[in-house]
Design a protein around this nucleic acid. Structure first.
Lengths: 200, 200
DNA sequence: TATTATTATTGACAATGTCAATTAACACCT
DNA sequence: AGGTGTTAATTGACATTGTCAATAATAATA
């Protein structure tokens, strides 16, 4: 019939567009990423991206998926047997990524899915991510190292880290010092608590 | 000369517009809040809001300031002498507000000021907020109840709470159960740590 | 080579932010 | 009271954006 693109070739075009979109997002921020601008920089006509993506939101979803993959890859490169150490390394990777790529991080982990809910595919990807991130804690708990089950600890640690990153991006505090100090405090407080032993 | 509006009257009009904008934001989400729609609902012409606000961003800043005031007011209504209890009550107010008003919370605490930095006025308002929120901790530390100075503890607690809220808004976990469980865990972990005592 | 399914482009439209030009309203002076 | 100039408000205008419909280009097969 015609210029038949295999599903793989289509996927490849999608991938390239997403890659370009990602770099634009990092360069110009979320408001600077437009479907038309993407097409312009890709050297195609204004509406061609809509051949490969239903929506602008679909483009954003594509970015989200690709970024999750990136982080997952880094997780899998960690070569470390001790579960607690592994857990800390995962946290380090996650945090460093968040600090190095504010716009990307925001898109993935700070979007609002209250109105239009998440797509099943993204939901799935996040579940996988979540699961992988939790695996060292699961092991640590099984080894009797933790007093809180993995799933619950993970949520707490994730919340803390996420809050830290979110504030970092908001520019509420500026200096790099404050940030590293904060990271240290979080670690200490989480492992030891903040209340002084009661003495009376 | 002419229909001279005193600065107070202008401020009053601004306030009313902001109030309307806030309700639209809560009803329709951030993408549903447009300058033109605001004018429409206010019964004025499309560009009149621009007489009172330089930018759309200035409108958003107005909302931010008004919301901070709201929370501050609630903080000041707390009547409680024990600093730790006061601290928990502040946390409760903050968290409940965040859960009840996702869109408003997001606008104030999850905006991206990396590119266009915060306005000095907003910066100031946030500093005040920050300072007030920290005051019970300061007292608690002076009373020897904490092992971490107020400023640093505040950042940690704030980060955790913020992360919790942010995830709640993202819809990463759905059930109310998970959320209350999480709040409980955060409290426990923060006060007691998560590591089991080492036994060998 | 002619056909036809598939890919890509252009045209079109409504919504939005925002500015310039115009009109309406009204306090003040004579 | 009526003209006047200043301020408030509206209308007009324009570029940008998301998105769809219509049209053109392309290339594999009959």
């Amino acid at each position: 019939m015609a210029k038949i693109l295999t599903e793989d070739q289509k996927q490849e075009k999608r991938r390239k567009l997403i890659e370009l979109a990602t770099s634009i997002l990092e360069r110009d921020g979320e408001s600077g990423l437009t479907a038309r601008g993407l097409a312009r920089e890709a050297g195609i006509s204004r509406t061609t991206p809509y051949l490969y993506f239903k929506d602008k939101e679909a483009i954003l979803d594509g970015i989200r998926l690709q970024i999750l993959d990136r982080i997952i890859t880094k997780f899998k490169q960690v070569d470390e047997k001790h579960p607690l150490t592994q857990m800390y390394k995962f946290g380090e990777i996650y945090t460093v990524f968040g600090l190095d790529h504010p716009e990307l991080y925001r898109l993935v982990f700070t979007s609002n899915f209250s109105l239009r809910p998440m797509t099943p595919e993204l939901q799935q990807a996040l579940d996988n991510f979540h699961c992988l991130m939790m695996s060292p804690m699961r092991k640590a708990y099984d080894d009797g190292l933790l007093r809180i089950p993995a799933e619950r600890l993970n949520l707490v640690l994730w919340s803390c880290t996420h809050g830290l990153l979110s504030f970092a991006h908001s520019g509420f505090f500026e200096k790099e010092d404050v940030l590293s100090q904060l990271r240290q405090d979080i670690g200490q407080i989480l492992s030891q608590g903040f209340l002084n032993p009661i003495k009376d």
